[in-house]
Design a protein around this nucleic acid. Structure first.
Length: 151
RNA sequence: GCCGCAGGCCGCCUUAUCGUCGUUCCAAUUUUUUUGGAAGGGAGGAAAGUCCGGGCACCAUAGGGAAGCAUAGCGGCUAACAGCCGUCGUUAUUUCUGCGAAAGGAGAAAUUUCAGGACUAGUGCAACAGAAAGGAUGUACAGGUAAUGCUGUAGUGAAAUCAGGUAAACUCUAUGCGGUGAAAUGCCACGUAAACCUGUGUCUCGGUUUUUACCGAGUAAGGGUACCCGCCCAAAGCAGGAGGGUAGGCAGAUUGAGCGUGUAGGUAACUACACGUCUAGAUAAAUGAUAAGGUGCCAAAAGUGAUUUUGGUAACAGAACCCGGCUUAUAGGCCUGCAUUUUUU
């Protein structure tokens, strides 16, 4: 874990804007906020399995499917936006990027489930382009719920 | 200055932090590799539709025939084209010139339309009007004959025996077209590996012959390329099963009919030469988030006005082997040309 901890350095202005719950985690130490290839879910078999066997939670507009996968080193995550709801390719891409961003900034919420790792799929079910702030809120609630159930 | 039309160009910017995908360099670990750091780069004019044309790759089927599809004045450009340029004809608009009492019609220029080969090969079709609209022929008057709508005029119509009109009607003529499509294809790794089992499947008649087989004819009739001939396969082909392996890596893949500038040739499209330049390469698919400032647009308020303040908003849209076009979508801005109107001199 040593390589993943960085000294906390934020300006006064930014830290003022942070909410208390998030502020707590960040104040102790800072989880590295990266999202490299090794944390992306790529196997089509696993994704199929997720839809068939995975448990799900829903908080508008995001639905998540997840399965425990303790043999993995990292949590694996994938993001999907159905073509049925969002027609434009540009908007689909954008929502996927925003989902990924929201996950990247909030994945530290899953760090404290010691030993337990998950395979997660995030599915966007809204029919219009979202505000990023709403997405992030929903993401935080879902990750917290997952955390509380398994700790 | 305002508004309109046509053509061309651009199509949000800057900074900071955190991320993300390649490249290069450095350090650590080291066979590969992995991790960290630094530098520099990272979507479009249409990347879209997949409508044409190529490059490139492959094929047991690529040849010939007919069919089908595409193109269509003439000349040029190009790797090629259904594209582009020039030109002739043609459609329409505007302006000018001169003719005329007027209605009108003539010529020239600019822009613009065209599915612009052939109805003297054949077939089909044609509203209204009209006796009659396609091997047609009636009435009135006049003429003529041995006799007859035989001839002329009137009448209908765009057109009445005239080489009529029509090919975004069949058709004919000329030219072109093998098919598939980067999920192609090649290599590496894994694997006993063009391996195993089951089913389907090569017809009928005649002749030669002991039989196999060969020859000929017929049929939709073994399989393959839509069809036929030809050709190829027969240890083939097709379908299923069991078992194994796997959605792996590298190449293809980004230096190219590339881009920029200049000179020369050409009416132009474009071409030649010289110099400079490297500008995305992902693969469950890289460009995002946050903050601040600016820019454009819209709305409201204030002001005679220049303008200021506040709020909102950021068009269409995401590379997927690569090029040349076409078509469609597109907020807003800039430039050029033409025409109208207003003001000033």
């Amino acid at each position: 874990m040593g390589g993943r901890i960085k000294p906390f350095k934020l300006s006064f202005k930014t830290s003022q804007l942070l909410k208390p719950a998030r502020f707590f985690f960040l104040y102790i130490y800072r989880v590295k906020q990266t999202f490299p290839k090794t944390e992306k879910l790529k196997s089509s078999k696993t994704i199929e399995k997720l839809f068939l066997e995975g448990d799900s939670h829903f908080k508008f507009p995001i639905k998540i499917f997840f399965l425990p996968a303790n043999e993995n080193e990292n949590n694996l995550a994938a993001f999907a936006v159905p073509k049925r709801n969002i027609k434009s390719a540009v908007n689909r891409n954008r929502i996927k990027r925003q989902l990924r961003e929201a996950y990247r900034l909030n994945k530290h919420l899953l760090e404290h489930i010691h030993g337990k790792k998950f395979v997660i799929l995030f599915l966007y079910l809204g029919k219009v382009n979202p505000q990023y702030a709403h997405l992030e809120k929903a993401m935080q609630k879902l990750l917290k719920k997952l955390h509380d159930e398994n700790s």
